[in-house]
Nucleic acid binder design. Structure first.
Lengths: 258, 258
DNA sequence: TAGTGGTCTAGACCACAGC
DNA sequence: CTGTGGTCTAGACCACTAT
């Protein structure tokens, strides 16, 4: 016997929503705990006396809320609340660069085993909003570094950096491994001491490509951070466009009140 | 004739995804512009030679990406990209408080007509994570101010502030209208000069209640900002928990590189 | 092999919008 | 009234997982 009630066919709220609500409640009250398997579609059809599409509609609602995840051939499972990851905004502090640690390693090293893969360096025409921030002309090119970050083997972030060719071309910045402290340390080596970063944070649903690259389930939004690095002469020397898996990422910023 | 190709039944990517991809491309290249109606489900069934559920599956994919919105009895429409809203992180600067302008008014005044409604002030036991940050004991109470912000009549943000009762009880902070400069100005009046704010930014899908209060469509995530205000003695004097409609909100933070 | 979810078909009735 | 999307039925075949 399933720990679920009946549905009321005369109720104005449609059956699939009633079913979703009951399952949601059982997840909320702990009847179905984190990691547990929900009753199969066949069981739910039988229990409620509805067609399979009706059950699937209910399950889709839960998945879109990020409560469950379906595994082909195994079942539907209550999602684990992933551990909260904090990103201290001082991860770009010079002391870390001087210590030879790139920003991602700073934020990740206390949380798990960090890694980077899919590093690709090219020259290309950046998107319009990036070109504008870099002060490039209409067909201007930039050095483009894209890569993916992982934590304990799980992909957590896609990042693409754009740098002016007159600064980066022919330097270690175009190497797959730019050396200790990352590209920010190299920019300072090249006579561009960094004085400020400006980050723009927003959210949206991921594209299908991002879903694959970040192993996102449906109902999981992403955080977008567009960062620009400004040198001592006020020049924007890098734009970094990142897409972070939304589940559990928490960005921290300290703001002086003066 | 619809501006769409055929699908390849032998392709390993299923028909509904091929259909979704074609529609997504036509939205991206401007064939279906903002506000335009997509072909009806019946037209798409006819064009592609598929069942209705297959078409609906494709349309659901677009909706979940936030690209389209269905209107019962009217059709499926390409969603408008809402105007980008920037929130300068200096919106808490003292010069604004001294000028008598609360933070939301500072960030909103150049963007439209700001308004606040549903202001409710009570005393209650805050959620555990808030209690912890405020340093309250297990059953400790706080002054709770909740309200909703609107821009040009459209709801954009829900906010709830928690303040220690020993600071806020019996002060203008418990008034629906706390006076010029908002509650931060009152905190400073009460001998708590603010020196720092710390914001934690994350994203998730909205609850059903938030969908209603913020008039969110499906496939629209929210930005969550949990902010704490720290006074000159290092005491956390306020926690503000906000939920911002994700569509178009952009938070801006400046980070010194030193 | 049995059970699971993934996709698809070909219908049906309903509620809502617009003419 | 017609056309739209919202919901539902009762099947089908497939791919994946576990045994």
């Amino acid at each position: 016997m399933l720990p679920l009630h009946r549905i009321d066919r005369d109720d104005k709220v449609p059956p699939y929503r009633q079913i979703a609500a009951q399952l949601r409640d059982r997840i909320g009250d702990g009847t179905f705990r984190t990691g547990a398997r929900l009753p199969s579609e066949a069981q739910l059809m039988e229990h409620y006396g509805v067609a399979r599409m009706t059950v699937r509609e209910a399950l889709r609602e839960l998945a879109s809320e990020g409560l469950t995840v379906a595994q082909h051939g195994r079942g539907v499972f209550v999602k684990a609340r992933p551990p909260v990851r904090r990103v201290a905004a001082d991860r770009f502090a010079r002391r870390h660069r001087d210590g030879g640690r790139a920003a991602f390693l700073v934020e990740a090293s206390t949380l798990g085993v960090p890694a980077v893969d899919r590093i690709v360096v090219t020259e290309a025409i950046p998107p319009a909003h990036v070109r504008e921030l870099l002060g490039l002309p209409a067909q201007g090119r930039a050095v483009v570094r894209s890569r993916r970050y992982l934590l304990d083997g799980r992909p957590v972030e896609l990042a693409t950096s754009y740098l002016p060719v007159d600064i980066a071309r022919g330097t270690p910045i175009t190497d797959v491994n730019p050396g200790p402290g990352g590209i920010y340390a190299r920019l300072e080596d090249l006579g561009h001491p960094l004085v400020e970063f400006v980050e723009h944070v927003s959210t949206r649903m991921p594209t299908a490509h991002e879903c694959r690259a970040l192993a996102l389930g449906s109902g999981e939004p992403v955080l977008m951070v567009l960062r620009r690095a400004v040198d001592a002469r006020g020049r924007v020397v890098e734009i970094c466009d990142t897409v972070k898996a939304g589940n559990g990422y928490v960005l921290e910023y300290r703001i002086p009140a003066i």
